[in-house]
Computed example of a mutant assay.
Amino acid sequence: MNTVKVAGLLAPIVDGEDAAVANLAAQFTAAASAQGLVDVAYRMIDSPVGQLLLAGTEAGLVRVAFAVEGHDSVLEALCAAVSPRIMRAPARLDAAARELDEYFQGRRQSFDLPLDFRLAQGFRREVLVHLPEIGYGQTASYAAVAAMTSSPRAVRAVGTACARNPLPLVVPCHRVIRSDGSQGAYLGGAEAKSLLLALEAGAK
């Protein structure tokens, strides 16, 4: 059984195990949450762009990660940057999972989730706050996004902010493209970006 260490305890990660073990895992999770031992809860969901890791704090959704980022590496980074008290506790992320499912089904065009931006500071955070202003099914160039900020010439920095966006999909950096109309790079990969843009174009 795989485990995650939480405040000196080992939280079981259940994947296809029997009902008794699953019940013990659920009890462990509930007890740890009730005692305030979980600072970062996480879960995995399947999606058209591959398996996604969702992580949340009491403040809100703090991380959405693609499989290509390496979920184990993402969890280790969250331990270092946020708290080592991290645990697989899906219930805290039910709303995020539901809204992402609705998005991928073409039934949701914007997200209504509390967000924890602690992993983005300074200008990067300013860029991310502006990205939802790009409407569903629309795109904007890196230069256009820079023009929304306090540093309208910082086009390259906008690209960096998008590349390091800790909340892709929910904070829509996939809608930012190059001035020549080409897609540009994307944290989840070029294929994922194409799929997301096509999804939104077809569901408008």
Rank of each mutant, 00 (worst) to 15 (best):
M148H: 06
A19N: 11
V170F: 06
E126V: 13
A154E: 01
A143I: 04
F28H: 07
E191C: 00
S47I: 08
A157D: 09
V64N: 04
A163C: 07
D180H: 02
V74Q: 10
I134S: 00
L167S: 00
N165G: 03
P84G: 10
M44H: 14
A80F: 11
C162E: 04
A144I: 00
T57C: 13
V171A: 01
M148A: 10
L75P: 05
L119C: 09
G184D: 03
A154T: 00
S194K: 12
F104G: 04
V176C: 03
P12N: 07
R118E: 00
A26S: 12
F28G: 01
T29V: 12
Y136K: 01
D18F: 13
P114K: 08
L113I: 12
P152C: 06
P84F: 09
M1I: 14
D94N: 05
M44F: 15
A190M: 12
A192T: 04
R118F: 00
A89T: 02
A198D: 12
D94S: 10
C162V: 12
N23K: 11
A146H: 02
F111E: 08
A143V: 06
P172S: 06
A67G: 02
L9F: 15
L128V: 08
G135C: 05
L78W: 04
A59N: 15
T3M: 14
A198N: 10
G159E: 08
S33H: 13
Q35F: 11
Q105Y: 00
Y186N: 03
D15C: 09
I86F: 06
S110I: 05
P152E: 06
R98Q: 12
L24R: 09
A185I: 08
S33G: 02
L131S: 01
V4Q: 09
V158I: 03
K193D: 00
E99L: 11
G56T: 09
Y186H: 15
R92S: 04
L119S: 05
F111A: 08
R85Y: 02
V49E: 04
I13L: 15
L187V: 14
A97D: 07
G50C: 11
L93A: 00
A11Y: 02
G188R: 03
A144H: 06
S194R: 15
G122W: 13
R107N: 12
G135T: 06
P90K: 06
I13Q: 07
A146F: 10
D94F: 08
T149P: 09
T160R: 14
A22G: 08
P172M: 05
Q109H: 15
L169G: 00
A65F: 08
R107F: 10
R43T: 15
D112G: 09
G16C: 11
Q109C: 10
R125C: 14
L187Q: 15
G188P: 02
A185F: 09
V171Q: 04
V38I: 15
G70P: 10
G135K: 08
V171R: 01
M87H: 01
S182E: 13
A157K: 07
A67N: 09
A59E: 15
S182F: 07
A30H: 13
V155M: 02
R124N: 14
I177V: 15
L131I: 09
A67D: 11
N165K: 11
G181M: 13
A143C: 05
A41P: 06
L61G: 07
Y186T: 07
V14K: 01
Q121H: 12
F123E: 06
A198W: 02
M148Q: 11
